[in-house]
C-alpha cells in the first residue's frame, strides 16, 4: 500500500476548466516533460498516468535503454529510459524524475523515465496541425512537430513506435 500511496496520478481533467475559459476553438492537450533541458510533449490521450516514485527492478541482460520493470498495481510494466531512447547521456535519477506510463502501438503499457514532468498544456488544434511535419529522417520519426510557446520550443513526440525502436 505504501508504494501506491506515493504514486501520484495527474489527470487532465484538473486542467479542463482553465482552458475551457480561453475559447480558442477545439484544443488539443499535451503533457510536457523535460529530458536534458529540452521540453517535449506527449498527447494526454497517450499518457495514462505519471508516477512520482517507482521501484525499478533491473532485468539482467536487457538492452541499455530498458531500465527494468515496475509493479504497477499488480501489473508488471517495462520501464524505458527516455535519455537513452533519445540518444542522450545517462543520468542518475533524482527527486524530479518521473515515470510516464504510456500505451504504445502494440497495446503494451510502458513506463518512460523522464527528468521531470512539467504540466498539461493546451494548444488550439490549428497550431498543432501547422506544426505537424513529415520527417524522413529515421532518427526523428517519433517527432511530430515543434510548437513555440513562451519563447521556448516544445517538441511534440509520438511514443507509439517505442516498441520497434528499442527492440532493434
Amino acid at each position: 500500500m505504501t508504494e501506491q500511496a506515493m504514486q501520484q496520478r495527474q489527470t487532465p481533467e484538473e486542467y479542463d476548466e482553465e482552458f475551457e475559459a480561453q475559447d480558442k476553438g477545439p484544443l488539443s492537450r499535451w503533457v510536457s516533460f523535460t529530458v536534458d533541458e529540452e521540453i517535449y510533449a506527449l498527447n494526454v490521450l497517450d499518457v495514462q498516468e505519471v508516477l512520482r516514485d517507482a521501484e525499478i527492478t533491473p532485468i539482467p541482460g536487457a538492452p541499455d535503454s530498458i531500465l527494468g520493470i515496475i509493479n504497477l498495481r499488480g501489473n508488471v510494466v517495462t520501464v524505458v529510459d527516455a535519455r537513452i531512447f533519445f540518444g542522450l547521456e545517462e543520468k542518475k535519477h533524482d527527486e524530479n524524475s518521473r515515470v510516464m506510463v504510456i500505451e504504445v502501438a502494440s497495446g503494451e503499457i510502458v513506463g518512460l523515465v523522464v527528468d521531470s514532468v512539467a504540466e498539461v498544456i493546451a494548444f488550439p488544434e490549428s497550431v498543432v496541425d501547422q506544426a505537424m511535419m513529415s520527417v524522413n529522417d529515421d532518427r526523428a520519426r517519433h517527432i511530430l512537430g515543434i510548437v513555440p510557446q513562451d519563447e521556448k520550443l516544445i517538441i511534440l513526440v509520438d511514443m507509439k513506435s517505442l516498441s520497434d525502436i528499442t527492440a532493434t
Binding site: I59, G61, P63, I69, V76, A167
Partner: peptide
C-alpha cells in the same frame, strides 16, 4: 506468473516476473 512485456521478448532466461 506475469509475462514480461513485448519490449523484453529479446531477453532470454526469464519466464516472467511475479510480485
Amino acid at each position: 506468473i506475469k509475462p514480461l512485456g513485448e519490449l523484453l521478448r529479446i531477453v532470454e532466461g526469464f519466464a516472467g516476473a511475479t510480485i
